[in-house]
Design a protein around this nucleic acid. Structure first.
Lengths: 361, 361
DNA sequence: ATGCGGAAAGAAAGCGCTTGCTGTACGCCT
DNA sequence: AGGCGTACAGCAAGCGCTTTCTTTCCGCAT
């Protein structure tokens, strides 16, 4: 059916071994022969069978990237930059295809996709998104990663807590986002504006990112004498609503916060998408931003800068992270010493935060 | 190195053929033998080599999806729904891995990725986004698609103009978005509000979608006696600015429109992302939305409903389209008669459009 | 008893490629 | 002129599976 190496060889009057060598260019072939072969390849419009090649050469043209959901801009940006880095320019050898796997945050799906990628003998796997803090599942994931790693698959963690494989050579290559520092600076910004009653809508409880951001927020409060032991921090729990990483979670959580009537003058959202819901809920209740309540997000997704008012948030250079993860998984750059590189975050102060009404009066 | 079929066979005391049959369940195997094999598989934690299987069985576990850029929510939503449909639940047989290819709208990149997918003998390919109207390139693309199709790769066009392969069995399976109708209804909405000077920011000139939307817009104008031949339509060209599908294009185009000083009371953007830029530019110039100028978009991306004011736009059910494309490319549903299914669009009237100031006065 | 059909398992031939090893022919040295 | 090194090119053995064809073995009817 399809044109094979043998067809090309026959046409060029050489053996298939020679054709293979011309194609891969890793063995001396006389100029005239090479030309003849190349002409035959062109005439027959030959395209190598990647599966046969992979089988014979024990290589793979696939790189997997595990994300919660590509439709979420957070992951979309990472995946896009990764694919651009890993992908090919003009069929350049070494360029890989990017397999996107939506895990929906489910550890089972994560495991399933890891198995599938192992089955395809993927050249590399990038895991993104906060890890799930469930020891049962993370054990299984670690076991799978250990096998993958042992069989030569390069593994990169992006925005996940570092991980060390059992009986292996040091920790996995990791790109860690400075969630703690970013959240801390964000809350400090609100405190410096004069806010004292700051609501906080968390992400999903089981994700590691959620904890890190919340911890940063609390660290800022404590540094200002508003820790849990202090008088000012007495009802700190009342200011926190546990949500999720989607818009509706922000909406609902905000209504809950307002219902509690704890006098918030600012709300920090788990991320920008949540902040969208927070803003929607506030408007729904007739509250102005930042007039009545200031709002801040996290991630600095593309639409945040153009929101009205523009959203104060913490920028994570997601594209840079994706590109870097791509280079790491391709082995184009060497992992940082210790395996962990921290991606710094930057506070973006914009129109959605302002001094509380009381301070302005 | 890795565990192979032979290892499992040896452990179970059977031939590798039997193991293969147990794994694929397409051949009678005695219950006791089956059990023994399954135990061996579990004990050895065997994972089949997908490449070897693909080579022997002439199948593939890969489905490719060509998008402009996954980071763009428009494509992200399609890709996400597609991958969910095509992907696996618990390694269910038949589940495929989704290869995402960012073409950046470049026909060369498109061709390169098609070759790569052919090399991997992909089971299916979904092409999204408006096609590029350049005959030279589209010819090459058509040729590649014809080969892919001939070799059994299922091809689905999603949001692209229908295409018929030379000497083939009818047109390719196509999911066409009703861009024309949507744009027309959108402009009619503005006209019915009383707008007569409606600016229009187009998408990239070479994309087919751009033309379809613009045509719909013009059709609405003509139907209201504002066609190019009429007095009202005399300077129609002045109301149109050619842009692109990104936020900055909308920003720049709007400034240009204002510079022309043609008295627009409403601006229709090529899509929601562009509308974001349009709004930003208007605010930048101190104009209120919709007080001074109404703004409308296209696509109804997730953030549009929560924008402030909420964006009037035309909804394309992108997730539904992606899911349907997934089912088609998997052969789970049969193509519509004639090959072309039209995805209907729906006008979403929201806060960013209102009667012009003059009409309200 | 003999023979026969069918169910289950094995042997082995590929699938299309890569690559170590084996030839072969030429140019050069002594 | 003989021998040897070098530069190419071919042979053939896999890579790990699937699948066709055979074989084996049993139970049953004759």
């Amino acid at each position: 059916m399809a044109v094979t190496l043998a067809d090309v060889a026959a046409r060029a009057g050489v053996s298939s071994a020679t054709v293979s060598r011309v194609l891969n260019g890793n063995y001396p072939v006389a100029g005239s022969t090479r030309e003849r072969v190349q002409r035959a390849v062109a005439e027959l419009d030959y395209v190598v069978n990647g599966q046969a090649r992979a089988l014979a050469a024990a290589t793979s043209d696939l790189v997997g990237v595990l994300v919660n959901d590509v439709a979420d801009p957070f992951f979309g940006l990472i995946a896009s930059a990764l694919q651009a880095e890993v992908g090919v320019g003009a069929a350049e050898p070494g360029g890989k295809l990017t397999v996107v796997c939506n895990t929906g945050g489910s550890p089972e799906a994560e495991l399933t996709y890891l198995t599938l990628l192992e089955r395809q003998r993927a050249a590399g796997v990038v895991l993104t998104g906060g890890a799930v803090d469930s020891s049962a599942h993370s054990e299984a994931v670690v076991a799978r990663l250990a096998r993958l790693s042992a069989s030569g698959t390069r593994i990169v963690l992006c925005g996940r807590p570092p991980l060390t494989l059992p009986g292996d050579s040091g920790p996995l290559t990791t790109l860690a986002f400075d969630n703690h520092g970013g959240a801390r600076r964000l809350t400090e910004h609100l405190l410096s504006l004069g806010h004292r009653r700051i609501g906080y809508v968390t992400g999903p409880a089981e994700r590691s990112t959620t904890g890190h951001r919340l911890a940063g927020h609390r660290a800022a409060l404590e540094a200002h004498g508003m820790g849990p032991g202090t008088e000012a921090g007495a009802d700190a729990d009342q200011l926190i609503v546990h949500g999720g990483y989607d818009r509706d979670a922000g909406f609902d959580a905000t209504l809950e916060l307002l219902r509690r009537d704890v006098g918030v003058t600012a709300i920090v959202a788990a991320n920008d998408t949540v902040a969208l819901g927070v803003c929607a809920a506030l408007r729904d209740r007739g509250l102005s931003i930042p007039g009545d309540v200031s709002v801040a997000g996290f991630d600095d997704l593309p639409f945040s800068a153009d929101a009205s008012p523009a959203l104060t948030t913490v920028r994570i250079p997601l594209q840079e992270a994706g590109a870097r993860a791509g280079r790491l998984v391709m082995g184009r750059i060497t992992p940082p010493p210790g395996g962990v590189a921290t991606i710094t975050t930057e506070l973006m102060v914009r129109g959605s935060t302002a001094p509380p009404a009381a301070a302005r009066a």
